[in-house]
């Protein structure tokens, strides 16, 4: 339990509310810019990376609970998904997957996997498979092609989540690289996010390339399922 106490130092407790507010504010900017993403868990990923998986879990869950309690109660049932996002981000960062652009892409993909796996039961059991978001149209289409509810929801989420979560992880990484080392060092796990030597633009381009390949792969998988 000692590491848990170390992860929850005073900087963590103060960062969590700010991280939740970042989630909300960026989520709303994205809506304003009419981008086809959510990007509403950048703060959660940030906390997971620099304060450990348990802090990430807590930030994610509280983020949706508070969002649900204060702004839109429809967000409330999804709090386990948000928690898993922070947890996976923290675990990946502990494993050293938050230190360069391409590793962050892997982290983003793993976060998306976690979100899909934890979100599907909620979607199926609480909402009967079709939720109140735009992606419901994809699910409805897949149901029409004769798929059962669970696989229709799974493939819908597989189509949407990776792009969103990889962008989220990349933005969180960019933010961390922009902060001074002296500031980051006050959090419990600064070693998780220190960038490796030899960072350059080529790596960023490789990372973006990997994202594009992943998107194409996802599209291919979906076409296969439909075909």
């Amino acid at each position: 339990m000692n590491w848990l106490k170390k992860d929850f130092n005073i900087m963590t407790w103060v960062l969590i509310p700010v991280a939740i507010a970042i989630n909300v504010a960026i989520g709303q900017i994205v809506v304003l810019l009419r981008l086809p993403l959510y990007l509403d868990s950048i703060g959660t990923v940030l906390v997971g990376a620099v304060c450990g998986p348990m802090a990430g879990l807590l930030t994610g869950m509280l983020s949706n609970i508070i969002w649900g309690l204060a702004i839109d109660p429809n967000a409330l049932p999804w709090f386990p998904v948000a928690g898993v996002i922070g947890l996976v981000a923290g675990l990946c960062a502990n494993a050293g997957l938050f230190k360069s652009w391409w590793k962050v892409v892997v982290t983003g993909f793993l976060i998306a996997l976690g979100a899909v796996v934890s979100g599907t039961p909620i979607s199926v059991y609480l909402y009967g498979g079709i939720t109140a978001s735009g992606s419901a149209f994809i699910t409805a289409f897949l149901l029409q092609t004769g798929q059962d509810i669970v696989s229709a929801v799974l493939s819908t989420n597989f189509l949407i989540e990776p792009i969103d979560k990889i962008s989220t992880a990349l933005l969180a990484f960019a933010i961390l690289q922009g902060l001074s080392q002296r500031f980051v060092a006050r959090f419990p796990r600064p070693e998780n996010v220190t960038a490796e030597k030899g960072q350059n633009r080529t790596q960023l381009f490789i990372a973006v390339g990997v994202v594009i390949v992943l998107v194409l792969l996802a599209a291919f998988v979906v076409v296969r399922i439909l075909g």
């Binding site: 939740i20 507010a21 504010a25 509280l62 609970i65 508070i66």
Partner: peptide
Amino acid sequence: QLAYVIVSTLQIIPQMESKA
């Protein structure tokens, strides 16, 4: 600490929104 997080988040979100 949890109570602090929840109450102070409710204060910070409106500040953050006006800042945005």
